[in-house]
Design a protein around this nucleic acid. Sequence first.
DNA 1: CGTGGCCCCTGTGGGC
DNA 2: TGCCCACAGGGGCCAC
Length: 276
Amino acid sequence: MPELPEVESVRRALAPVVGVPVVGVRVARRDVVRDEAGRRRGRLDPAGLLAGDRVEAAERKGKQLALVGASGRVVLVHLGMSGQVLLPAPGGRVSGGHAHVVWTLGDGRRLVFRDPRRFGGIWMLPDPDALAERWSRLGPDGLAVTGADLARALGGSRRAVKAALLDQAAVAGVGNIYADESLHAARIAPTRACASLGRADWDRLASCVRSVLRGAIRAGGSTLRDYRLPDGSAGEAARRHRVYARAGQSCPDCGGEIAGMLLAQRSTCWCPSCQH
DNA sequence: CGTGGCCCCTGTGGGC
DNA sequence: TGCCCACAGGGGCCAC
């Protein structure tokens, strides 16, 4: 679910948590928390989840969110398909269960990680170097990606361009919604082989990726079902979708019928009359 | 090596 | 009304 705009919207909404002490943490499901090596069993040191620490910064690359402690320890959060980071009002309840990790903050509030499907999770990293190492495996962030970046990473690939856009090592933060939306804005068919695109195509596509992501952030992200801002409210970006989940409806640009297909095991929507 | 396919998991909406 | 299947924003791992 959450792609770059949703994670960035969450990150921005966590500004009130920065500078606040972390009093303690309760872990209801041990296996959503992993150490640096990826292990999800064994004794869990609460300090690894910033208990007794203080949140110094909330950072993001692609779809990954990092809470950096004053100690230098890092809590890295992946939302997967159904993950949420919630900051309920004091005394408020988090409905629906699946609240796997709950932090108690010094200002009396709670920070909650819930994730019904558990495709997401939390990684405890010992220091900022470990975070930098992890993030070095991601491609450039979607808000900053250039045509040169895409051409270098994907220019020789035989894959369909949509499948390639979903590769986080090529560009970090684009998922199924914004891949379809960016390709439509760039007027490029999702089925086109990467190797058939020229430099002008990559430049236009990168530009469209950046603007589509920026626009979705302005709208607070796309709420289809699970995604919520930390205060529980929905993002409004889904109103702006031009092709995603609109198969059979008319293209807002040309009025032609939007096609639906399966590409790389993901539902894909596009306009065959204006994307080539 | 690059690439496609399968699987992880829960919840829900539609069709029968 | 109720059941069952298909499908959902992601990504790791496997076999080709």
